[in-house]
Every structure is written in C-alpha cells, then in structure tokens.
Amino acid sequence: MKVLVTVKRVIDYNVKIRVKPDGSDVDLTNVKMAVNPFCEIAVEEAVRLKEKGIASEIVVVSVGGSEAQEQLRTALALGADRAILVESTANTESLNVAKLLAKVVEQEQPSLVIMGKQAIDSDNNQTGQMLAALCDMPQATFASEVSVADNSVTVTREIDGGLQTLSLQLPAIVTTDLRLNEPRYASLPNIMKAKCKPLATVTPDDLGVTLSAHTQLLGVNPPPQRSAGVKVKSVAELVDKLKNEAKVI
C-alpha cells in the first residue's frame, strides 16, 4: 500500500527563539532550520511499515518555500521514495495547507496518511484533523502505537486520562505523538542516494487551489519572564515560607 507522509520545515528545536524588535514576528534570519520533530516521527513510522513489507511506497509532501526541499531530501534520506513540494509561501495557515494536501491526496490516493500532530513553531495541532475532514477520512490523532492489518489500522492514542485504542477503515489519517517511535539518523550513503530520488514541485495553481487568508497575525511578543526567587536552606524553612509568606498551603 502507498503511504503519504507530510513534513514541515521549522526552526530547529534546540534553537532559542527571538522575537523581532518591532514585535511583528519571530526572527528567523540565520536560524538553523530542520524537519519538525513530529513529522520526523511520521517519516520513521512510514519507513518501519515499509521495512515490515506493509507499505510499498512512501511519498513525502511538504508545503512551503523552495528551501523546504532540504527537509524533503532529509525525509528521502530516511527512507521515503519520492517527494512532492507544494511551493507556496503566502497564506500557509493550517486550513490552506490542508486544502493543498487534500488535492495531493486526491491525486496520489494513499491508503494511509501519517503526519506530525503539530508543528513546533505555530503549535496549532490542526492540519491532520482538517485534512481528514476535507478528504472525509477517519482520523487517529496523537498516536503512540500503529498497526496495519488488511483494510484497517489500529491506533493507540495518548489522551488526557491515559490511552485510547481505535480501529479505522483505510484510507485513514494518523497523527504522531512523541512516544510512537524514535527516529533514526540518516546514514551518509542514504543521504547521497536521496539526492537522486525524484522530487517534484507543484504550485497551488497547478493543484487548482485558490488560497485566501483566514487569520491575520497582528503581533508577537515575548512572554512575561519569571525570575529566580530565593534559595531556602532546609525543609522546615521551605514549609514555613509556603505557609506564612506565599500562603499556598
């Protein structure tokens, strides 16, 4: 079966972000970029399905500027077979990304779509669910275990109270949580091989999608900072402070 995986180019998770002095957005100039960690887990899961002989082809898709080719090549080096870049930098909010992906899904007809549950830049946690709605497919978000059998996929999900297991009819959409797997590192030979794997570029026009803005970013501010308080010397002093100074116990 064919598996479609999505990746997003985001700021590397180790980078401490800065807000631009004019408060218009986060400063991304000269910042290290990487594959969104949840997307990396999605790629890894697809590759494991291929290694088990369940997936026959892995198509990786990204929506973004031409520089997102770098992240698509990373996914190819990890084991995806071919890549599609939907080149679009304007209005790339979740709903629009989902609309573009829905067209790709229509063309590619995958049996399973695996996506990260959220991107670590916008933290929206929306695109997978929106794509599922637009394609009228079942969804299993926040997956910590995925097993495919015949015409269905059984997914264990991390929910607030614990774990929930669902069975979905294929085609279906799964979004990954952190504990689904631990992504591998790409080997040098695989990085070299990835350079020769096919990478197609399409535009929203090619897909017949017109994107309009649904939200407007008015400004970005740093959050209020907490400062370090006092060090106490003993447990007795701590209990005393909590009782008589902070009055929280």
């Binding site: 909010e93 929206n124 939200t215 407007q216 008015l218 740093p222 959050p223």
Partner: peptide, 30 residues
C-alpha cells in the same frame, strides 16, 4: 474557517492571544 488554537486571552470579538514556539512567544491573532 480557520481555528484559533489554545487561546490564553480574549482581546476583542475577533482578536485573541495564543502561545507559539512552546510558549516562548505570544502571538496576537485576528
């Protein structure tokens, strides 16, 4: 329509504040 996720403040009928980058920045979104 869009979804405005995880708001932490209501600024007006159409404008909201929400954390981005794991709470390392606060975005005001209309």
């Amino acid at each position: 329509v869009a979804q405005i996720s995880d708001i932490v403040a209501v600024k007006s009928a159409d404008t909201f504040v929400r954390p981005i980058y794991a709470g390392n920045a606060l975005a005001t979104i209309q």
